[in-house]
Amino acid sequence: MNYWKEFSKGLLSDNPVLVMLLGMCSVLAVSTSVINALGMGFAATFVLVMANIVISSIRKIVPSNIRIPVYIVVIAGFVTIIELIMKAYVPDLYTSLGIFIPLIVVNCIILGRAEAFASKNGIIASLFDGLGMGLGYTIALCALAFFREVIGAGKLMGISLFGANFQPALIMILPPGAFITLGCMLAFLNKMQEKKAS
């Protein structure tokens, strides 16, 4: 079993956001600033890794006809834990992410990895799979947020970049900007892949 392969596939070749287009709801909503993207990425990675470990370790004893409810309960448990931790230690971030933290429960990346990978593979492989997928999600989210925050608000990590005279393109911060940026990123990546293949 090649752990590096399990880890690295989530970063680019099987990236959950840019290649599999999973979990779009939270991606489009929280990518308005890089700080939000980092916070959301970290929370999702934590849940992904922990859920993958637990689900992989109980994969042989879970009766197959109730596996989905069992996975959901495990995932919901970890989401609540990270929610409480964020509320206690990073309340500002928690307020700005708002409803999207509890909504990690229904993020299809996490259930997708549980069903497609953790329920069929060993604990350590699942750990690396979760870590890679989580990091891939975070990277995609941060890249999206980088363009949206710089163009749409003239800021990076909350720091103004261009001075007071800069007129930001508000559309980039609003929902349409998320679609436009994501579309451009996907087109660019597809073009790169095409070049590689030919």
């Binding site: 309960v73 495990v74 919901a76 448990g77 609540t80 834990i81 409480l84 931790i85 509320k87 206690a88």
Partner: peptide, 12 residues
């Protein structure tokens, strides 16, 4: 799972 969550809740 409930046990884990309530333990975290008690801490935070």
């Amino acid at each position: 799972v409930g046990l884990g969550v309530s333990y975290t809740n008690a801490l935070t």
